[in-house]
Amino acid sequence: MFLKKLFSKKSTPAPQQQTCKAESCSCTQQNGYEATMQKSMDRRTAFRQLTTGLLAGAGLLQTACSITADSESREKAQLKWEEFFKKNYRLMTDEEKQQTVDRLTRMYELRTGKHINMDTKGPVQSVLYGYAFNISKCRGYMDCVNACVQENNQDRDTQMQYIRIHEHKNGQINFEQAEDDFFHEVPATGHFYMGTQCYHCENPPCVDVCPVKATWKEEDGIVVVDYDWCIGCRYCMAACPYDGRRFNWKEPHVPEEEVNKDQHYLGNRLRKQGVMEKCTFCIQRTRKGKNPACVEACPTGARIFGNLLDPNSQIRWVLANKKVFRLKEDLGTEPKFWYFMD
């Protein structure tokens, strides 16, 4: 019932438009993506031209008024100003989304001289992402964590990580007894491994508690954060029963050469001090049909990702044929993250 409502009522205007596009292209399934991308690219270029024109105009005006400040620092100041007063992402029109993306891209360019690609691709219709984790297969190699950190531009100084791998002794799943800081050859005899991260709950408690609607569940089930809207009260962190959220206690730092430049507004774009962030199922990848970085990096095939609404997907086969369980199911959060064994 809950999900039905989710799919019938489209409360967020922006994704709706995106989904409509996907729908209209469904006749040419294989090229659907390309068509969508092409179409939006055209529009984007148009907006970029328009906005750069506007910006140049504004810059000219300012140059006329001011003699001392150089044009670059004035542009920076103006971009910062406009960024500060922008709306919550969900209230933005497509045009406004493009404008903020252009501003962010330009700000990065002014800061580093490098270009980034920032995406605002919305959810694809009839997709609900789900994840399965095979605790018989995970061997504690931690390759997923490395891949995740690189993909998602997490702060290197505090070694922020979305994924935790817990080493359990055979015979119990007791997280209080589990070892999280293991560093020995793996898998250790008599132990098994279990990864945790954001479970993208269908009833996410973190979303309910946010006082400013800076975090929400997208139509494809991904729980995202608008990093520029978050005020940093950390209520969501207290509300999450799964330790799925991470806070930027300081200005995050990623060496420029390590920055992943394929970014999504709701995903791995660079964050700032004092905002919340979390796993987004690699929204910048998965909305293009790729697997999340952790799935791609896992050498054992313990991680399975897919569309819960597609009865032919791998994840649906796992749910139908393996004995699966979820953690803290009694809380009613309905995680879209299942564990299973061989």
Binding site: N88, V209, P211, V212, D228, I231, G232, C233, Y235
Partner: peptide, 27 residues
């Protein structure tokens, strides 16, 4: 003082910001 982004506290002002009422107890 507990906020990570006190400059963005205006997001809490109804009308100006976006208020998650009645869902959020903080609201």
């Amino acid at each position: 003082v507990d906020l990570g982004g006190p400059a963005r506290a205006w997001h809490l002002i109804p009308g100006l910001g976006l208020f998650n009422w009645p869902s959020s107890m903080l609201a």
